[in-house]
C-alpha cells in the first residue's frame, strides 16, 4: 500500500490501522489488506432477464407479499365454495327464470370480486413500498435505465397473479360444483374453461394495472383508492349517469373483463373479443402512462 503521507493531515490520524478492511464487530478472519489486488468480482451487464430475476428475489423476500397473495387465493376459493353451497341450499327459493339463467361457473368464480382487491393492493404496494422506504433509489442506481424495472414488475406480477388465480379458480370451481350437487357442471361443459382461464387473465390484467398505477401515483393510499374506484365504484356509480352516457360503462375494465370470463354477462356487455381488446387497451394506456412518468420524473 502506497501510503498517501504527503497530505497535511494531523499525524495521529494518518497512522491509524487502515489495513483493517473489516468493520469492527465483524468476525476477524475475513480481514485482508485493502491495497492488495482484489480478486475481481464477476458481474454481468444488466438485462431484462436479470432485472426480472431481481424482482423475483424482492417479491419472494417480503412476508407481506406472501400474505396478501394468500388472501387473494383464499378469497377466491372461499367465496366460490360459499356461493356454491348457498346456491344449492336456496335453490328451491329461486324463481324459474333465475333457475334458467343460473350459471354454475359464474357463481363459483364470484370470489374474483374481492380477490381483485387483494391483487390491486399487492400490485400497488410492490411499487409504492419501494418509494415509501427509499428502496427505489437503490433499485434505480442498479438499473438506471428504469424502464426494465417497470416491465419486470408488470410481467412478474402478471405471471404470479395469473398462475395463482388460475389454480385458485380451478379449485374454487371444482369444489363449488361438488357443493352445487346436482346443479353443478363439469370442466368439459360449455364456458367452463373460458371462465376459469378468463378470470385468471382478468386478475392478471388487474395486477398490471395496479403496478402501472403505483408508478404513476407513487402513493399507496392513492393507488389503492384509485384501483378500488376504477374496479368497484365506477361500474356501480356509473348507473347513476344519464342514459346517454351509460353506453360507456361496458368499456370499464371490470365490465370488459366480465365480458371475457362470464358465462352470462349483463345485457349491454361487450363480446369476449371486444372485451379482451378493451382490457388490453386499458393496460397499454396504463403502462404508457407509467413509462412516461417513470422516465421523466426524478426518483
Amino acid at each position: 500500500m502506497s501510503a498517501p503521507d504527503a497530505r497535511a493531515v494531523p499525524s495521529d490520524e494518518v497512522t491509524l490501522p487502515r489495513q483493517r478492511s473489516v468493520l469492527p464487530g465483524a468476525p476477524a478472519p475475513a480481514a485482508r489488506p485493502v491495497a492488495q489486488p482484489r480478486p475481481a468480482v464477476p458481474s454481468h451487464p444488466v438485462t431484462a432477464r436479470r432485472v426480472l430475476a431481481s424482482e423475483w428475489v424482492k417479491f419472494r423476500s417480503l412476508r407481506s407479499t406472501a400474505w396478501t397473495l394468500l388472501s387473494a387465493v383464499l378469497l377466491m376459493i372461499g367465496i366460490g365454495w360459499l356461493a356454491g353451497w348457498g346456491s344449492n341450499d336456496s335453490w328451491a327459493d329461486l324463481s324459474p327464470q333465475e333457475q334458467a339463467t343460473f350459471s354454475p361457473v359464474d357463481i363459483t368464480l364470484a370470489g374474483f370480486y374481492l380477490a381483485q382487491l387483494a391483487v390491486s393492493v399487492l400490485g400497488v404496494l410492490l411499487v409504492t413500498g419501494e418509494y415509501a422506504t427509499g428502496m427505489v433509489r437503490a433499485t434505480f442506481a442498479a438499473v438506471p435505465r428504469r424502464l426494465p424495472v417497470l416491465w419486470a414488475k408488470a410481467v412478474l406480477f402478471a405471471g404470479v397473479s395469473f398462475l395463482s388465480m388460475l389454480a385458485a379458480a380451478a379449485v374454487s370451481f371444482a369444489g363449488g360444483q361438488q357443493l352445487l350437487d346436482e346443479h353443478g357442471i363439469g370442466i368439459h361443459d360449455a364456458g367452463v374453461v373460458r371462465g376459469i382461464v378468463g378470470v385468471a387473465g382478468y386478475l392478471a390484467a388487474v395486477a398490471v394495472l395496479a403496478v402501472a398505477l403505483g408508478f404513476v401515483l407513487r402513493s399507496t393510499a392513492g393507488g389503492v383508492a384509485t384501483m378500488c374506484g376504477l374496479l368497484l365504484v365506477a361500474p356501480t356509480l356509473g348507473l347513476l349517469l344519464p342514459k346517454s352516457w351509460q353506453h360507456l360503462l361496458p368499456y370499464l375494465p371490470s365490465n370488459a373483463g366480465a365480458a371475457v370470463f362470464s358465462a352470462h354477462p349483463s345485457a349491454d356487455s361487450l363480446g369476449a373479443v371486444a372485451g379482451s381488446v378493451t382490457l388490453g387497451l386499458w393496460l397499454l394506456a396504463a403502462l404508457l402512462a407509467a413509462a412516461w412518468t417513470l422516465s421523466r420524473r426524478d426518483v
Partner: peptide, 8 residues
C-alpha cells in the same frame, strides 16, 4: 436483489 441485476 441488487446483486441479481448484475448476475453477481
Amino acid at each position: 436483489a441488487l446483486a441479481t441485476t448484475h448476475g453477481i
